[in-house]
Design a protein around this nucleic acid. Structure first.
Lengths: 210, 210
DNA sequence: GCTTATGGATACTGATACTATCCATGACAG
DNA sequence: CTGTCATGGATAGTATCAGTATCCATAAGC
């Protein structure tokens, strides 16, 4: 397959493919002559994955590169790979909340984690985001949602169980790794849009006089 | 309060505050003389809301403006407001998947919606994203997650019930509207980070030999 | 009266994700 | 075998976004 055909197969413009090649998101095709390379099915798959991450999950190109890099390494432990995927999903925040709100939130979260028996690295990116979010809710005078943290955690544990189940069904390590990435990142988009749909439905029911 | 004090109170640099004023995210202070204005508590609150949306939820400035605009209008129906918040959370995607994957996904989603009895506007932004995401999962050879759509929807309905409850506790329309926005948008960040934490915990358990 | 802060306007910056152009060569149709 | 088109590789340009920086005339506060 030549670059033009790859472009047609995936609906990604040729210059964009060249850009991904330059950035190292997509491995180079096999050179058949100094200015002629051929691409295979693997490139099609990889390119589709790239686009899904970028367009659907809005992962920045630099992070996609990191994630794919760790997908391609077969020495990196799965747990590390998941960490990368998580970093791709976590905003790099600064503080938004007042100090007391933050300490209340921190207490709330550590409490949640201990009662649930979760094992969480204190440096986990999501941990800081969770604390900041709860703190922000307090600061903004909306503590109600955060008060139901435990119920949220219940619901969240349901997905997670499902995801682990779905993911561990994969036999080989490569497939497992890829499904972990896809599950983690596109799973987020899936849940998010489901939630919005459910909200929209209820909101239509309740506040719309159509 | 002068701009410098507002900056100190919220930890937002003065030039950034000026930028938000220019962009119309933050209402102008009350002019006490041609080059002197005074800001109040409302500005502090608003500024904190803006920062939470931008930093925590990563909502683009232009969308924040739209959302705040509809918050300040007391004629816009709540359902419309929710729609705006949803648009702020939905990527503007193009197609990533093959056509057959898309049609399978569409069937799956319409089925879900009818069996659940959800009332969903066919133009809802989240609908397209959901379909694209499921289609992408199929195309990428990871149909397992999407196969449990129904279980996901179960879990999602739990949040939504909680959120509606939390939100309708607010007596006045203004408070209600604000809590809808905060709940919808920061709620997303909350769930997302909870999910990542749960995943991290399980992944540490299962794949990490620390 | 002197230093500092302010409102308002305009200009500049750095990051991100592409697009466009160029060129020498190669593929392929006639 | 010749003209046209596509290609790999390099470099440069573009649009958007989210601020920052600078200027200025005026006002606040010691």
């Amino acid at each position: 397959m030549r670059i033009g055909e790859l472009s047609k197969a995936t609906d990604v413009p040729v210059p964009t493919i060249k850009y991904y090649l330059r950035e190292g998101l997509l491995p180079a095709g096999e050179l058949t002559s100094p200015n002629q390379a051929s691409y295979g099915e693997a490139h099609v798959r990889r390119l589709r994955l790239i686009r899904a991450l970028i367009e659907l999950a809005e992962v920045p190109v630099a992070q996609v590169k990191e994630i794919l890099g760790s997908l391609d390494s077969d020495t990196e432990p799965l747990h590390e790979q998941i960490g990368r995927a998580h970093r791709a999903l976590t905003p790099t925040r600064r503080l938004t909340a007042t100090d007391e709100a933050r300490s209340v939130a921190t207490a709330q979260v550590t409490d949640l984690i201990t009662t649930r028996g979760w094992k969480v690295d204190p440096d986990a990116p999501a941990l800081a985001t969770l604390i900041d979010t709860i703190a922000a809710m307090h600061t903004l005078g909306q503590p109600t949602l955060a008060a139901h943290l435990d119920a949220y955690a219940d619901a969240v544990e349901r997905f997670t169980a499902l995801e682990i189940e779905a993911v561990t069904a994969n036999p080989t390590r490569d497939q497992l790794a890829e499904s972990v990435v896809i599950g983690t990142i596109l799973g987020e988009t899936l849940i998010s849009s489901l939630r919005l749909l459910a909200q929209e439905s209820i909101s239509a029911d309740r506040w719309n006089q159509t």
